[in-house]
């Protein structure tokens, strides 16, 4: 893993000139509770994704990353509810579509790689069949030979021999299942791929292989990827920009170099401090004390206040607004109040 501070993102500058694919505005998601008031899982989230951009979505578990991603695809669990905002995909508001129109967008335009591919694949259908299902659904004009050829090409792309397409998920290793899942996500040439912690539950060697594969595929196919992770190493290696979430809200959002070299939000700073870095001497590994807040029991002021090392009185009473620090760098902390442009 290269030192993040010197990592060169040669194409980072050009990314900002590409057209915007996805524009998320003020998105707010609740989990409805039968007896209590709704839990605020995501609040007023804004971000954009350009063609060919890789966005890292970072935060500890339970801070609303997965909810946000499922919300984009309108795949929330039954209790989930999008209460405000808009999601523009190529200028079209996904939240205004009918369910049938949305089914058309899923996988063809936006596909998703789930964590833990063991259960994300149906155990009683072959891998090839499950990939082919997506092709037949969204590219209906292909005959079975063409679908078959495409399945083989996709598997080849992720490094799986084509003749293993007739095998079942339990005959694949964990890493291979994740590769198959990636092949499936690419089945219909989507513009955006959401990778929801695709390497958790895999061992370190396999993780590195999967990440390398995704990096190569991204360059080769010019994919736009939203990479959900709590591993800052992954972010440094793959991403162009980073959105740091805490307790369902944006903590900081900037390009990757800014996040690594000039983080402004105390949470980002703490995350980087806790991030195991091989350039640092061993034994200085830290982690942020405490836990992320429960979404149904949020603190009254800033959601990070109870754990923040730089907390002061106002943080415990008021939610900090989002301050724009420069052209593409926003953060939500009272410490930055005077610097807003």
């Amino acid at each position: 893993m290269s030192d993040p501070s010197v990592s060169s993102h040669t194409h980072a500058a050009s990314v900002n000139d590409r057209p915007v694919l996805l524009d998320v505005r003020n998105l707010s998601i609740d989990y409805v509770n039968k007896d209590a008031s709704p839990a605020q899982a995501v609040r007023e989230l804004d971000f954009t994704l350009r063609a060919g951009e890789v966005l890292g979505l970072v935060g500890e578990s339970g801070c609303g990353k997965s909810t946000l991603m499922l919300g984009l695809m309108r795949l929330l669990p039954p209790a989930g509810r999008i209460v405000d905002g808009a999601v523009y995909f190529q200028g079209r508001d996904l939240l205004a579509l009918s369910e049938a129109e949305m089914e058309d967008v899923r996988w063809k335009n936006i596909s998703i790689i789930f964590q833990g591919a063991m259960n994300a694949l149906n155990p009683v259908r072959t891998i090839g069949d499950q990939i082919g299902e997506a092709i037949r659904l969204h590219m209906p004009r292909q005959d079975s030979a063409a679908v078959d050829a495409r399945i083989r090409r996709l598997l080849d792309l992720v490094g799986i021999a084509g003749n293993r397409k007739d095998q079942y998920p339990h005959q694949y290793s964990g890493g291979m299942r994740q590769r198959a899942m990636i092949a499936m996500a690419l089945a219909c040439d989507p513009q955006i791929v959401i990778a929801d912690e695709p390497t958790t539950a895999l061992d370190v060697m396999i993780q590195a292989q999967i990440l390398e594969l995704m990096g190569n595929l991204q360059k080769e196919l010019g994919l736009s990827i939203i990479f959900v992770t709590h591993d800052l190493g992954v972010v440094a290696e793959l991403c162009d920009s980073v959105l740091v979430m805490y307790g369902g809200v944006t903590a900081e959002y900037a390009d990757v170099d800014t996040i690594y070299n000039a983080p402004r939000h105390p949470y980002t700073q703490e995350l980087l401090r806790a991030f195991p870095d091989i350039t640092r001497p061993a034994g200085k590994l830290t982690s942020i004390p405490g836990y992320p807040p429960r979404l149904d029991d949020l603190p009254p002021g800033c959601r990070f206040a109870p754990r923040c090392p730089q907390v002061f009185g106002r943080c415990r009473q008021e939610m900090p607004p989002i301050y724009r620090l420069d052209d593409k760098h926003v953060a939500s902390c009272f410490l930055l109040e005077g610097e807003s442009v």
């Binding site: 899923r106 149906n122 997506a134 659904l137």
Partner: peptide, 17 residues
């Protein structure tokens, strides 16, 4: 309730499928 049903929904299949 299994994960692969969520995958199937993400693939754009409707409830009947």
């Amino acid at each position: 309730s299994e994960d692969y049903i969520l995958t199937a929904r993400a693939k754009g299949l409707n409830h009947f499928q």
